[in-house]
Design a protein around this nucleic acid. Structure first.
Lengths: 248, 248
DNA sequence: TAGTGGTCTAGACCACGTG
DNA sequence: ACGTGGTCTAGACCACTAC
């Protein structure tokens, strides 16, 4: 007999996991913003009425989930989606020598929209609810390379402006974290090879029918809620789309 | 000043990491084969002359690296690349509803070969050294879907036969683990969209020029050494190539 | 020097699986 | 009943950072 894990089982959570969840909740609320230090471990231990070892185990899991980083002698800090981090954690475009580079971005459009059935399902919201839709063109070496059509759940990103999107010097995920305290820790991508549709071909400067990567990506924050979903087309010429799965 | 980590720094490794490496070494030697239990934690603690907590920390890292699994009340076991594991850890083909399935495989050829420059580089061996080359066709729903051209470093897989490859009821990685004690824990893939070359088009039953995923994958075992590298073509019709990055 | 995280100890008790 | 891993304690000392 193989019982599936039930979300709210009868068994109480271990102390360290309770503490982890309380810390995660405080982080989610933006109690400490990215780059700030958490209280020290002895202080947290006292505050939660647990031993340091137990608090450390809670923080261990937050570290494993890329939510905080420890720095010996300094403290424990809320992790930010820095350029470096983005270059190394998720998919990237690499050239033949394996070099990585962040692309330049150009915002094509930014509008309020209503979620169609598929978008709603991917974002975990009701069909017809408000979403922000932005279309984005990324260029590498001056050549348009990636076209993104992105949907964000409007409720989580209230007040976001086109200007913020245009003027950012970070990735969208970096902006989400700095502006809204939402950290994307997990992405799921579905990839296929397609012949370029006419409109996308024009944007990416290829002939219609040229083979392109077509990717549906959904990003999740550490609440497990979807933070964005996007339809992405990638022209893979001199560069390849890279993914690293597994440890280290 | 930012010193890069030097492989053999002056600082001694912490005890738990020494113990981890000794355990990893024993695992690499095949001291305990897949599915077998390691000695109990108190026994290991006594044997290594450390406290249980320290041994547990060593094992924690092995668990995090997918090398062993703990089962409460039973013991700690060498992890195997089971069907389920392969379905959930690395790339897979999913249908519209997100269902996953392992394909049927057909061995097209199996020969000894010499590593060309690119293959040698990917496998971390000398150019011209012996490699095993196998070509494989995977079918889903009776339709040829994936074509793999795989190179293995011959030194690590001495004695492998075409019959073993044909008759296996597991993935190649599963076979590697059961037969040679080599566990692939990390893969790197470079993806692009291409027009199908004539020979591949024939194998995958599409017209030449049809868009295909072209993937160069290298798999690494937990020594960090390459276990295989392959050129893969995928026909993505009803199914998509899925990848999950990040936590959980 | 004081405060931080990093490592380590030597236990305790609990939950689970097996005989 | 017994042995396993899972949790937790209440400290210790070390290495590093900041002042």
């Amino acid at each position: 007999m193989n019982m599936l894990a039930t979300p709210s089982a009868s068994k109480p959570l271990p102390r360290y996991r309770q503490i982890k969840q309380q810390l995660a909740e405080l982080l989610r609320e933006g109690k400490w913003r990215h780059g700030q230090a958490l209280p020290s471990e002895p202080l947290l231990a006292q505050r939660f009425g647990a031993s340091i070892g137990t608090v450390r185990k809670a923080i261990d899991e937050l570290v494993a989930e890329n939510i905080v980083v420890r720095e010996q002698g300094r403290g424990t800090f809320v992790k930010s989606h820095t350029r470096d981090y983005m270059l190394n954690v998720f998919f990237q475009l690499v050239d033949d020598a394996g070099r990585k580079e962040l692309p330049r971005h150009q915002l094509l459009s930014f509008v309020r929209w209503r979620a169609d059935v598929k978008t709603a399902e991917r974002l975990g919201v009701a069909p017809g609810s408000a979403v922000l839709r932005l279309r984005n063109l990324l260029a590498l070496d001056g050549k348009p390379t990636v076209y993104d059509d992105i949907r964000l759940p409007a409720a989580r990103f209230a007040g976001l402006t086109a200007n913020e999107l245009s003027e950012r010097d970070t990735t969208l995920y970096g902006l989400m974290q700095q502006r809204f305290g939402i950290t994307v820790v997990r992405i799921v991508e579905h990839l296929e090879a397609v012949a370029a549709p006419a409109d996308v071909a024009a944007l990416l400067a290829v002939t219609a029918g040229h083979p392109l990567l077509r990717i549906v990506r959904t990003g999740y924050s550490y609440g497990g809620e979807a933070a964005d979903t996007r339809l992405r087309y990638v022209r893979t010429g001199a560069r390849r789309y890279e993914s690293v799965l597994g440890q280290r």
